[in-house]
Design a protein around this nucleic acid. Structure first.
Lengths: 193, 193
DNA sequence: CCGACATCGGCACGCGACGTGCCGATCGAG
DNA sequence: CTCGATCGGCACGTCGCGTGCCGATGTCGG
């Protein structure tokens, strides 16, 4: 037998996160439970509970594993094009495994737990909004956006609309949606009309 | 003893919806379960299952019981003021019992069930967007908004941002938030600047 | 007024996930 | 090599699920 030796410590942690993502991709949110992850990984439940206090915490870590990359906007000098590209990429990621199912699971758990909701907000939503704010602030400095625009709210509106579509609505985040959103944004704060 | 006689049929249905709302207001989403509603109502579980196939269905009906009123916008001739008033009222309703907890419960359930997500979207989100679209369409006709505005996306952005704040974010829907949102909307599509 | 019948409350079941406790095996640092 | 931390495996009690069955209770037609 070429059994891998029983792994411990950090290696096990890494493996468990991956198993969680695999499970989410294969069976979706409905099949996500601590028991299921433990079975799938061939692991005692303690090994999971020792690392994360709850399924929610595990899900948050699993999410960071795949959601921290691809968050940065390009800066080609054309805000609208850069936002468009990033929104389409994020929209696709949010609706595909493994990010889609895991994100949905976290959202569901968060409805029952306000602490988790705060963590989710701080660790993911605020981050995404911040990157967006950074990008449009640069655009304001280069004169692509009007100086009087309140960009903090704008960043929230942009990101919020995407999350609304992907998590609450049933409509896809397609080119029409992104263009409609950007039309409104640029009509409000763009300098070239 | 002045026991009320054992009620049947429609009367029981009505009562069960009310108990669900009471339970949501008192113990929140975490305490919502079919068993809990049955216990609280002093009812056999069959009496609930005979009426609704799942907790989700019961929650949807309970939600309609309290969410169908107060959805209409006033029409004072000032779009911005009318939207502002309605957004603040909706924001408050979404974050208070019983609507808040029940809405959260439905959102959570919907993450695991795409059929429910479609029903939720159709029965509530689309309705809210439609009322908003109606109001801003009238504003377009009276010349308060530019003729070229794509109001369908605008209505989604307006409502989506509110839902994002109340259900995913941890920020309150306060006057600043509503004003910031309306600033962007009016800057984009308003005719008077 | 009364009998037929749908609906009712109560109880029980098997299932699965939860979170915890205990065991003996196994790994790795000193 | 030794010893302690970590491991997999198993079991437990609790809970909610969805279903089945019972005898009691109401409603309605005759």
């Amino acid at each position: 037998m070429t059994d891998t030796p029983r792994r411990r410590g950090a290696a096990r942690t890494e493996e468990l996160l991956q198993v969680t993502l695999d499970l989410a991709a294969e069976v979706g949110y409905a099949g996500l439970s601590i028991e299921a992850v433990a079975r799938r990984a061939g692991v005692g439940k303690h090994t999971i509970y020792r690392r994360w206090p709850s399924m929610s915490a595990l899900l948050l870590d699993a999410l960071s594993r795949v959601w921290t990359s691809d968050l940065d906007y390009r800066d080609t000098g054309d805000v609208r094009a850069d936002l468009r590209e990033q929104f389409l990429r994020s929209g696709l990621a949010l609706s595909s495994p493994p990010i889609g199912p895991v994100y949905r699971a976290v959202i569901a758990e968060a409805q029952a737990d306000s602490m988790l909701r705060a963590t989710l907000h701080e660790r993911f939503l605020v981050t995404v909004e911040q990157r967006t704010l950074d990008r449009i602030t640069r655009a304001q400095q280069t004169g692509e956006l009007t100086a009087k625009a309140n960009l903090e709210f704008a960043a929230e509106v942009l990101c919020g609309t995407l999350y609304y579509r992907s998590l609450l609505s049933t409509r896809p985040i397609d080119e029409d949606a992104v263009d409609g959103l950007l039309d409104m944004f640029m009509a409000a704060y763009g300098t070239s009309h």
